[in-house]
């Protein structure tokens, strides 16, 4: 039997790949509690990777899509609406499926796009890995959900603020940056917190059926399922992964709460919006 320190050394970085720990995952009767604790905990780094990058990139894309959706030009608002409808209306699970099947069909060598003076080769090989392809799907998904939240917030911006901005002679980008955007963020932030939490939770779906875990390097829930398959005992691995996710959720709530405080710092205390953990949907 391994000691706890040995399993930490062997398995904590193992989710990065074979080079970072034992070649093989623990099997059968060889599995100790510490193995489960550290391998699942190590797998959490991929959950954090997916969540941070998807939320970080999706945030900016969502701002853009939300602005497109509220614009008066139908050439902008219609595609944005269709995008949001598609990604909010279909299960994330199916989206992973769909995109993985699509990525597999792309030629491995890359796609050549002739631009006249030169030929651009788009690398497509990485798209069939979860770390790139799965992240891509997650980004699109969170963009759609957050864009819908931002649209609601954009429509709820107090008219007086916008008129005041006009009166001050602000227009165009200056008005957006100084008045519209901070107001939108302030109004959308409590629900955006829930969106971030839910996105973090749905990173568990990445390896579920579509994207393969190369070299058995997967996220926390992938390892939890692996242990349950091996030990046929769901009462250790699943509660462990649940505990990790509760901890992660608390971290997100605290972090986003700090941002929320900053966004609302100009308001009197009773008008500030509190963050409430109210996830309204699963994917």
């Amino acid at each position: 039997m391994r000691t706890c320190a040995e399993s930490f050394e062997a398995y904590f970085l193992r989710p990065l790949g074979r080079a970072y720990g034992e070649n093989l995952l623990p099997r059968g009767l060889d599995i100790t509690f510490c193995d489960q604790l550290f391998l699942i905990g190590g797998g959490l780094m991929w959950n954090i990777y997916f969540a941070v990058l998807a939320v970080g990139i999706g945030f900016f894309l969502a701002t853009g899509v939300a602005l497109m959706k509220v614009s008066e030009n139908p050439w902008l608002s219609r595609p944005a609406g269709a995008f949001i409808f598609f990604f909010r209306g279909s299960p994330l699970f199916i989206q992973f499926f769909f995109f993985y099947s699509m990525f597999v069909l792309l030629p491995r060598a890359g796609i050549d796009i002739p631009l006249g003076f030169t030929t651009l080769t788009v690398e497509t090989r990485a798209l069939t890995t979860a770390q790139v392809g799965g992240l891509f799907v997650l980004i699109l998904n969170t963009t759609a959900y957050s864009a819908e939240l931002f649209v609601g917030a954009l429509r709820a911006i107090p008219k007086g603020d916008l008129e005041a901005a006009d009166a001050y002679g602000l227009s165009g980008f200056a008005k957006f940056r100084r008045v519209t955007w901070p107001n939108m963020l302030r109004l959308a932030w409590p629900s955006y917190t829930n969106e971030a939490i839910f996105l973090t939770h749905s990173t568990t779906l990445v390896f579920l059926s579509a994207f393969p875990a190369r070299q058995q390097s997967g996220e926390a829930f992938y390892y939890a399922r692996y242990f349950v398959d091996q030990t046929f005992n769901p009462f250790i691995a699943y509660p462990l992964v649940a505990a990790y996710f509760i901890a992660l959720t608390l971290v997100i709530i605290v972090g986003f709460g700090l941002v929320n405080r900053r966004l609302n710092r100009h308001l009197p205390r009773e008008r500030r919006q509190r963050i409430r953990f109210r996830p309204q949907y699963i994917r």
Binding site: S202, T204, F221, A224, Y238, V241, A242, F245, I246, P279
Partner: peptide, 11 residues
């Protein structure tokens, strides 16, 4: 609500 629902579906 604090745990990914998929964990419950399998658990």
């Amino acid at each position: 609500r604090g745990v990914p629902d998929i964990v419950f579906f399998l658990f």
